[in-house]
Simulated scan of single mutants.
Amino acid sequence: MKTVLMIPARYASTRYPGKPLAELRQKDVTVKSLIQMTWEAALQVGGIDAVHVVTDDDRIRNAAEGFGASVLMTSSEATNGTERCAEALAQVDADLIVNLQGDAPLTPPWFVEALIDRMKDDTTAQVATPVLRCDRQTYDMFIEDRKAGRVGGTTAVFDTNLHGLYFSKEVIPYMAPGKIPDPVPVFHHVGVYAYRPDALRAYMSWPEGPLEAREGLEQLRFLENGATVACVEVDARGRLFWELNNPEDIARIESVLAGA
């Protein structure tokens, strides 16, 4: 199965303009852009035949080519990473497309490898995406963001077959304060996807649905149109996972990098 990994990146983020070029300091005090760190994370994934940064912005293209990345250009009409991957599909030959979004440099390679394995084993799944059970620290970060009025990470709920039921920027399921079980029954959705090419083509034929529009979550378009999204539970193996959603997240990610 020929597998191509794409890193969709746009400059004009509503919440954080220029986010792919935001600089982060690592343990050895080296400073790298978010898009470069994500590219380097992608190169650690096994079973990938090619890696491309996918963008419509010349600033991102120039930065990516500057550190040796392959770049596929798309139109400025793409409204999210899935649409950008779908546009780029015409430029590659692949049986499986992996979308590693450009704001998740802490994504371990085994998260992505688990998706590839699931898509090989589950022929009914049109899309696969990782979910990570929250530890108390991550759960508290979710609650802290919501109390501060920040839209942070995404949570997921799924059925007994690990097929996605819903994804939300709210913390679901609800738990009363002071009654948080251990382990915490909240799953952090990791913004990585594996798609079959036909699923990407179908996605482009569907209009944005009301749930996708309200939540601002691209994967809800699949659920709103009856497509099966397989949730793959992954293990962080003691590492803290967080995405760069807001400027405040830089300090969180740099603290993880400092201890890496």
Results as ranks from 00 to 15, higher is better:
108 P>D: 12
189 H>A: 08
86 A>R: 11
116 I>V: 15
210 P>E: 11
106 L>P: 04
68 G>H: 00
111 F>H: 10
137 Q>A: 12
19 K>Y: 03
156 A>V: 07
33 S>Q: 03
224 E>G: 06
205 S>V: 14
52 H>N: 13
79 T>I: 12
147 K>N: 14
190 V>Q: 04
30 T>W: 03
92 V>Q: 02
68 G>Y: 02
249 D>G: 00
37 M>S: 10
141 M>I: 13
105 P>V: 00
83 E>K: 00
81 G>D: 11
49 D>N: 08
15 R>P: 02
28 D>A: 02
80 N>W: 02
89 L>W: 10
151 V>E: 15
165 L>M: 14
248 E>R: 06
91 Q>V: 04
150 R>M: 12
255 S>L: 10
61 R>M: 05
146 R>V: 15
195 Y>T: 01
31 V>P: 09
143 I>D: 10
102 G>D: 15
117 D>H: 12
199 A>L: 01
90 A>H: 05
59 R>D: 05
75 S>P: 00
155 T>I: 03
182 D>R: 15
32 K>L: 04
93 D>S: 00
191 G>D: 15
127 V>F: 07
21 L>E: 09
249 D>Q: 01
158 F>L: 09
8 P>G: 03
107 T>M: 13
130 P>N: 09
153 G>S: 07
245 N>W: 13
86 A>H: 11
238 G>I: 05
133 R>C: 03
73 M>Q: 02
210 P>V: 11
92 V>S: 01
89 L>K: 11
97 I>G: 00
1 M>I: 04
260 A>I: 06
148 A>Q: 14
32 K>Y: 06
175 M>H: 10
253 I>A: 01
60 I>H: 04
136 R>H: 13
155 T>L: 00
59 R>M: 03
252 R>C: 02
256 V>Q: 13
107 T>L: 12
5 L>N: 06
194 A>S: 04
12 A>G: 03
148 A>S: 13
161 N>V: 12
80 N>S: 06
40 E>L: 03
165 L>K: 15
74 T>H: 03
83 E>D: 02
2 K>P: 08
101 Q>V: 14
219 Q>G: 01
225 N>D: 06
253 I>M: 01
216 G>T: 12
128 A>F: 06
29 V>M: 14
64 A>D: 08
139 Y>F: 06
246 N>F: 09
50 A>K: 07
2 K>M: 10
223 L>W: 12
230 A>S: 12
228 T>M: 05
254 E>C: 00
21 L>V: 02
122 D>V: 05
85 C>N: 09
46 G>K: 09
148 A>L: 14
111 F>T: 06
121 D>N: 14
37 M>W: 08
88 A>P: 05
156 A>T: 07
212 E>I: 11
159 D>G: 02
176 A>P: 05
157 V>P: 01
32 K>P: 02
171 V>Q: 02
112 V>G: 14
23 E>R: 08
166 Y>M: 15
181 P>C: 06
221 R>G: 04
211 L>F: 08
89 L>V: 08
228 T>A: 10
48 I>N: 03
171 V>F: 06
181 P>T: 00
122 D>F: 05
41 A>M: 08
96 L>R: 05
103 D>T: 14
71 V>L: 05
81 G>N: 15
30 T>N: 09
33 S>G: 05
199 A>K: 03
111 F>R: 07
8 P>Y: 01
192 V>A: 12
61 R>T: 07
26 Q>R: 12
28 D>K: 05
242 W>I: 10
